[in-house]
């Protein structure tokens, strides 16, 4: 999932300081799972903002709605009926959702309530970790299911480097050395010899370095 975290309340409040009525839009996708922008967080943020503004003597009116997903245009349709008289839209989705709303409503001021962090998963309730670097060319079959692109601080493909100490990365004691994890796992699987193969420099053009990306599946495109 895309993991995001809410911006400080103070910052969100500042973004809509000059608004009298705002629409807060949650997203029932990834940000619900990472407890940052689901229905519950949307209602809580709306309530907190209303209280703050009332205490400041500048009451704020809020409308809330949680889309099934903000990254699919059809799920934004219900907003058409809610957006009319609001001064701004506060999106509690990842950066994708914020942009989808901004694109659909070109004349509305749209602000993000979250900071989009990474593609990852949960380690335990309330803790999330990065797992995918979105490089566009998966090599997990070569590295025992552990991604060196994102879990190695240097993204090196033929590790470990000299900074690997006691299974930890030199950047911090609580960061595992991805190449230690890869080595241990390949050893346990009896596939250590596969690591002897030197990986050539990776083609990063499929990653962000190639500019904004697009994925197309021709067979499901509906012709006009």
């Amino acid at each position: 999932m895309i993991v995001a975290q809410q911006k400080p309340l103070e910052e969100i409040a500042r973004l809509i300081n000059d608004c009298q009525k705002v629409l807060l839009v949650g997203c029932a996708g990834c940000v619900t799972v990472c407890l940052a922008g689901g229905e519950k967080e949307t209602e809580f943020l709306a309530s907190a903002l209303r209280i703050k503004r009332q205490l400041e003597g500048n009451p704020l009116e809020t409308v809330t709605f949680t889309c099934t997903r903000q990254c699919d245009p059809e799920y934004l349709l219900p907003l058409d009926n809610l957006i009319g008289d609001v001064d701004a839209v506060v999106s509690l989705a990842c950066g994708v959702g914020v942009q989808y709303i901004a694109e659909r409503y070109p004349h509305k001021w749209v602000v993000p309530a979250l900071d989009t962090k990474f593609a990852g998963g949960s380690l335990e309730q309330g803790v999330w970790a990065e797992r995918c670097g979105l490089c566009g060319n998966c090599i997990l079959h070569l590295t025992g299911g552990i991604c060196p692109v994102i879990r190695c601080s240097k993204s090196i493909l033929n590790g470990p480097c000299g900074g690997s100490q006691d299974g930890k990365c030199e950047i911090a004691r609580d960061v595992d050395c991805a190449w230690q994890l890869i080595y241990d796992r390949m050893k346990a699987l009896g596939k250590l010899e596969r690591l002897m193969e030197i990986m050539p420099p990776k083609d990063w053009s499929t990653a962000r370095d190639g500019g904004p990306r697009r994925a197309v599946r021709e067979d499901v495109i509906i012709d006009a």
């Binding site: 103070e10 703050k52 205490l55």
Partner: peptide
């Protein structure tokens, strides 16, 4: 903590 942030 949130209450303190929003001024209550």
């Amino acid at each position: 903590k949130v209450l303190a942030e929003i001024g209550l």
